[in-house]
Design a protein around this nucleic acid. Sequence first.
DNA 1: GCCGTTTTCGGCCCGACTGTTTTCAGTCG
Length: 574
Amino acid sequence: MTRSNDMVAEALREFAELLSIAGEDQFRVRAYEKAARAVAEDPVAVDGLDEKALDDIPGVGSHIAAKIRELLSTGRIGDLDDLRARVPAGLRVLLDVPGLGPRRARQVYEELGIASLPELLDALHAERLRTLRGWGPASEENLRVAIGQAQQAGARMQIDVALDVAEGLVEGMRRCPAVDLVTYAGSLRRMCETIGDIDLLVASTRPADAMDAFATSPLVANVSARGSTKCTATTTKGVHVDLRVVAPQVWGAALLYFTGSKAHNIHLRRIAQHLGLKLSEYGLERIDTSSSVAAATEEEIYGHLGMPWIPPTLREDRGEIQAALHDDLPRLVETKDIRGDLHVHTDLTDGLASLEDMVDAARRHRYRYVAITDHAPLLHMERMTDEKALAQRRVLRTLQPKAGLTLLHGSELNIQPDGSLDWDDEFLAGFDVLVASIHSHFTMSRDEMSKRLIRAIEHPAVNIIGHPTARSIGHRPPIEFDAEAVFEVAARAGTALEINSFPDRLDLNDELARLAQDHGVVFAISTDAHSTRHLDNIRYGVATAQRGWIRPENVINTWPLGKLRTFFAKGGRR
DNA sequence: GCCGTTTTCGGCCCGACTGTTTTCAGTCG
């Protein structure tokens, strides 16, 4: 999966970090950061571009274009090697220490010779930092606490965990009479795949009371910073929360600001500037007179900037502002568009609920159809057999008359290392729908893996590739394959790619889904449910699809049954 | 280092909070 763009972006990021520690001009640092982002998110692979085409990438100018060319042709950047020689490697690590920015990282290095985290901890212990200019006992203590919390908090949360905490906090604040409005914002509102901390926004005319309610909430364990409008705390579950209280009349501006992303906000502010306006969390105002133009709602603010409201799932500065300015935002798939779930397990294999219960649950979701797709025999631990599959099919057919929705009999096949599948073609032809997934041999070469996937995609019985990269967030990296080649075959073969809704999968992810859609691929947004409750996870799959700009017409389980069956036939009979 | 409806120089997003200052620097989001 590693693209040349990722490799180049990483080098540019390192360049930016080393420049910042070296004390170079901050705008030069930002230029490298911006270029890194631009390259990472550019849909075109940079290794095919000449210097002129590289220069055309917004944020990449002649100097950085030359460095990229140098990296692509020689495998290194001379100036980066020089920088590395000037700045010890350990100092980069110090930038990740919360509370330690480039200036202070450089200060502790130059004045105390500290160039690693262990050395920093030693200096803290010996109370040597307080001897530096600008430091005192309190700043030492804060740094100590921040390092401890970072080590304890560690990884980012899965989105379902964060949503649970956030909804609990919102519910609690809603009961406070001083609170007019309350919601979560930040990366959670944008539905990012993992969440670092929770941003809570409150509108109130009595901010002190609202702040008190938060600080004394049973869910809040300790408060680490508190001003008149802002409060930072940790919940009893160790989740970091930032609360911001604003006046109700600036709700929209604050919501826009705290939803982010940072890059989206910066882009909006630059547009505001060009219009003679200034945008902050307190509203949009004229620069010359400081008179307010808009603040109450997000819609008004976007409107005054010359564009329609942009859904939070798109706010990553990946072209959505440009699209909005041209009134060309995509219509995004929504949960209400989903007519059925096409990847569902039962207790015949590793699901927890019976076939009857899963069918009931799908009916309660008001679905028009559901596909039961238990595991196939080659996933040996699940002990599937031909007989069990056929028996399940018979039961399914007897449930159909009173089911209230169409029951499709399917299976989740195992794509073998050579791309072959469980069961012979004749047996496979008996299913209504087939998902094929990779469950083993995750570390084949990129080339072999691409061939493996393509063979499965081209199989006339396979309709959907399940969790295509097989990643497990926080546990297993995605498998590597030639995404563009695979996507082209999937589009041509009439095989859908899954957007798996499980919070630790979200696979395809947003960026790959967007790339796939550009190649003409269609998608199945499925839950891979192993219990009735898992059907609710569809919201995460839909959010991931939205983040990938996926339109409803490209999602096969928004289609009516007739169209879906035609698609499943892949030009043949079924 | 990048960029241009302020166009080849001179800007570059904006504000809160903390700790150390005695008017501000550093960090964060």
